[in-house]
Design a protein around this nucleic acid. Sequence first.
RNA 1: CGGGGUGUAGCGCAGCCUGGUUAGCGCGCGUGCCUUGGGAGCACGAGGCCGCCGGUUCAAAUCCGGCCACCCCGACCA
Length: 573
Amino acid sequence: MRMSRLLVPTLKEDPADAEVVSHRLMLRAGMIRKLTSGVYSFLPLGCRSLRKVEQIVREEMDAAGAQEVFLPIVQPSELWLESGRWEVYGKELLRFKDRHGRECCLGPTHEEVITDLVRRDVRSYRDLPINLYQIQTKFRDEIRPRFGLMRGREFMMKDAYSFDMNEAGAEEAYRKMWDAYSRIFARCGLRFRAVEADSGPIGGSFSHEFMVLADTGEDTIVSCDVCDYAANMEKAEVPPPAESAKAEKPCQFREVHTPGASTIEQVSAFLGVSHRDLIKTLILRTENGPVAVLVRGDHELNEVKLKNYLKCTDLEMADARTIEEVTGGPLGFSGPIGLKKVTVLADHAVKSMGSAVVGGNKKDVHIVDADPRRDFCVHHYGDFRFAQDGDPCPRCPQGKLGLSRGIEVGHVFKLGVKYSKVMNCTFLDADGKEQYAVMGCYGIGVSRTVAAAIEQNHDDDGIIFPPAIAPFSVLVTPVGAKTPEIETAAETMYQKLWENGIDTLIDDRDERPGVKFKDGDLLGIPFRVTVGKKAMSEGKVELRNRKTKQTELVDLDGIIGAVKKALDEWTPE
RNA sequence: CGGGGUGUAGCGCAGCCUGGUUAGCGCGCGUGCCUUGGGAGCACGAGGCCGCCGGUUCAAAUCCGGCCACCCCGACCA
């Protein structure tokens, strides 16, 4: 492709409304333009990158035995009423009526449509297992679209759905997808990690998120520095500490006056003790009544873990009135001593505290020298807090957990019979008995992957694309005063690279070298062949690596070999 | 939806508080000269419903009211 003919409206200045780096750079590099909030047009360069990711996804899905389909984006309300999600999904589901007044929606995901398809046409165990996928535009009317392609309302997604005869088959399908995803992101040239995610009521480790590692990522990854354990924040397990190091204090607890001090910060400052010597007593409300949860002062309650333990769906912090009913004291001074009306749960770390500060269940009163094992009744100790940097690994003896950032680009999830049951997606097994298909679903944010790649790979000058997903692999840049030698040499380079199957762009614009170099760096094309009089005088051109910024001189007729070698040797590290 | 902010040329901004002649600047765009290894220089030029609607006033980008759009911070998710 010739740059003089290509629509690449690069911007010298940062657009005012682009905050994150991928959004900024994609706008500046002329890859995308915003149409309206959370909705973007892909210009030629953006489109090329998107297609490259799609193609890698397609090849690996096919290789894993999945079959490509193409499902409708407009869906009738009936299917959603049937699955029960018409009510549950909320405002993210964009609904409208057609001319006949029939309720419709734009598909934010396709479980309903695929389950409907399969239940109609897959009747026998002989047709199973089957895995169907599509690469399609999704629409989710996000509360707050932001960060450009990272969280758009309209976005490109690959979604796959597996149907199996039984649990074992579903697990096998899950494993295949897990492997396919690993290959996909590796082929994209990205540094990534699969992390365990919370799978809600289904349990087990049957949900993994694929995270592109980037400091600017929105998600926190918890990972072990020794073994390969990794999980997201909600899921990351914290093992119970080795039994109490602290000796029990023989003395009795006593009340102290703590006027106006109710937060951990205030109480620890007032009493001159560290956060970790305090116990937070949190009163929460569930659909089954209130609970009290104790966590150490320097720890955070993980509501997902608590929900999973309680098997409840609604969970929120109790209001002042409920707290008073439960504890007899005002908000801000709750403590576990003497609590009778509620179930008391505590995080493991609380158990090994020998002497702690707790709320007194009276205004401006705290209690010191309280001993959990002696002074209060805890119905159950469990893992109820978020992991912290330095916590021990739940899987191996020496490992320590560390926190890092990532961008979720893929999610594999075992659905079980959730949809097949409500939508009656059944098949006849070998004994002629009707069974529910066991499902799994597997998503990849294709457009988000492009953004994540940029988020992970950029510098002050612009994008640094991994070759596999770069809009072009090589940029031929003739520079300096126009001379027939340079122009001819550049054209020859361009033709030869093209003929050898290498996606090549030539900057044939009548621009000064500085402009071409700046734009070239901004676009992030991994290799640049510079044709200028310096090297040409020795019959050579320069091959520059966008990532390492290293330049090598190459003979005119050695360019193909040099470029192929450079592409081969490229690594994500 | 709650909180904060912004709408003036394709992009980035000034002007608004304290109404008053042709609404400015930088980048980009067009033409010409010149220049050509890291966003050159000079000259000329095109380009504005000052977000929209209404009000106040002799007079509104500027003051007042309403609406709309967009961005940022919190609950969702690929």
